[in-house]
C-alpha cells in the first residue's frame, strides 16, 4: 500500500511542477512588472533619480501606508479629453486594422490550406520569412516606398498614370499607418487561420456539394464556422498589440495620428511624468484585459 502511495505521488508532483512553470513565468514577467507600474502610478513626480517619490519602498509598508496612495493620476486622465480620445482612436485604428487583416489574411490562409501538402510547408515558411529581417527596418522600408518621391510615385509615373510633377501623398497619413500595420501583423493573422483551416475535413465540403449546396453557401455554412477558433485567435493576436502600437504610427503616421502608445510616450519622455504614464498603461491594460478574458473563454469552448 505504502509503495503504491508514493507511486501515486510522483505523477501528482510532476503535474504540479508542470503547471507551476507557466504560473511562475507569469508571476515574474507579468504580475511583478505590473505591480511595479501600479505602484509608480500611485506616486507623485519629483525632480530626482528616478523622477518620482515612491509611496512605499517595501512590500511590508503596504498596509500601513494604504491611505497615502493617491488616485490623482487616474483622476487627471479623466479631466483631459486627450486621453480618452487617444484610447478611442487606438481602439478604432486597431479594429479597422484587424478587419483589414482578416480580409487580407483569410484568402491567403485558405489558399495555403488548400495547396498540395508538398508545398504547404514552403508556404508557411514564406509567411514567416519576413521575421528574419528586423521589424524596424521593414517599417523604414515602407517609408521609402510610400514617401512622395518614393517607389509608388516612381512606379505610377513610369506607367504614365501620374504626370511627371505629380506625387502620391500617403506617407504621414493614417492610410500609411494602416498599410504598415496590416503588413507587419499579417503573419499573426494568417498562421492561426491556417492552423484552423488545415484541420478542416474536406469530405464535409464534398458531401455538401453532392447534396447540391453551391460553393459560396458551403463556405459560409461549413468552412467559416469551423474556422472560427482560428478567426478569433488571429483577431485577438492582432487587435491587442495593435491598440498599444507605437513604432508604426510614429514612423509612418502624421503628427495628427493620435494613438495611446504615442500619448504614453509623450507622458514618459516629454513630461518625464512616470506616475501619469504608468496610470495610462494601467488603464490600457484594463481595457485590454476584457478581450483577453473573452478570448480565453472562447479557447475553452473550442
Amino acid at each position: 500500500m505504502a509503495e503504491r502511495g508514493t507511486q501515486g505521488m510522483r505523477p501528482f508532483v510532476a503535474k504540479w511542477a508542470l503547471v507551476a512553470v507557466p504560473y511562475l513565468w507569469s508571476l515574474m514577467f507579468f504580475l511583478a512588472p505590473f505591480l511595479i507600474i501600479l505602484k509608480i502610478s500611485l506616486s507623485q513626480t519629483a525632480i530626482a533619480m528616478p523622477p518620482y517619490t515612491p509611496v512605499i519602498n517595501t512590500l511590508g509598508e503596504f498596509w500601513s501606508k494604504l491611505t497615502d496612495f493617491s488616485l490623482d493620476n487616474y483622476m487627471f486622465l479623466g479631466e483631459d479629453p486627450l486621453y480618452y480620445s487617444a484610447y478611442l482612436s487606438s481602439l478604432r485604428i486597431a479594429l479597422i486594422s484587424t478587419v483589414l487583416l482578416l480580409i487580407v489574411g483569410y484568402p491567403i490562409a485558405y489558399g495555403m490550406a488548400r495547396a498540395p501538402k508538398s508545398v504547404r510547408n514552403a508556404l508557411v515558411m514564406a509567411v514567416i520569412l519576413p521575421f528574419w529581417t528586423s521589424f524596424l527596418i521593414r517599417v523604414y522600408a515602407w517609408i521609402g516606398i510610400l514617401k512622395p518621391e518614393g517607389l509608388i510615385t516612381i512606379a505610377l509615373q513610369g506607367l504614365g498614370i501620374l504626370g511627371p510633377g505629380e506625387q502620391i501623398h500617403i506617407y504621414n497619413t493614417e492610410t500609411a499607418v494602416f498599410i504598415g500595420i496590416v503588413y507587419s501583423y499579417l503573419p499573426f493573422m494568417v498562421l492561426p487561420l491556417y492552423a484552423a483551416l488545415e484541420k478542416l475535413d474536406a469530405t464535409l465540403l464534398e458531401a455538401a456539394a453532392d447534396l447540391g449546396c453551391p460553393p459560396m453557401k458551403s463556405f459560409w455554412v461549413i468552412t467559416f464556422p469551423l474556422s472560427l477558433p482560428g478567426v478569433i485567435a488571429g483577431c485577438f493576436l492582432c487587435f491587442i498589440p495593435i491598440v498599444g502600437e507605437f513604432v508604426i504610427p510614429d514612423l509612418l503616421g502624421g503628427s495628427g495620428t493620435l494613438m495611446i502608445g504615442k500619448t504614453l510616450w509623450a507622458e514618459f519622455f516629454n513630461n518625464r511624468d512616470w506616475p501619469v504614464s504608468s496610470a495610462v498603461a494601467v488603464v490600457l491594460l484594463i481595457i485590454l484585459v476584457v478581450p483577453i478574458v473573452i478570448f480565453q473563454n472562447q479557447q475553452k469552448k473550442a
Binding site: D80, L82, G256, N270, R272
Partner: peptide, 19 residues
C-alpha cells in the same frame, strides 16, 4: 518645472494633433 512642463507638452500635443 514639472507643472510648466506639463502645460508646455500639452500645448505642443494640441498643436500637433489638434486635440
Amino acid at each position: 518645472d514639472a507643472k510648466a512642463q506639463r502645460v508646455l507638452t500639452r500645448v505642443w500635443t494640441s498643436v500637433k494633433t489638434g486635440m
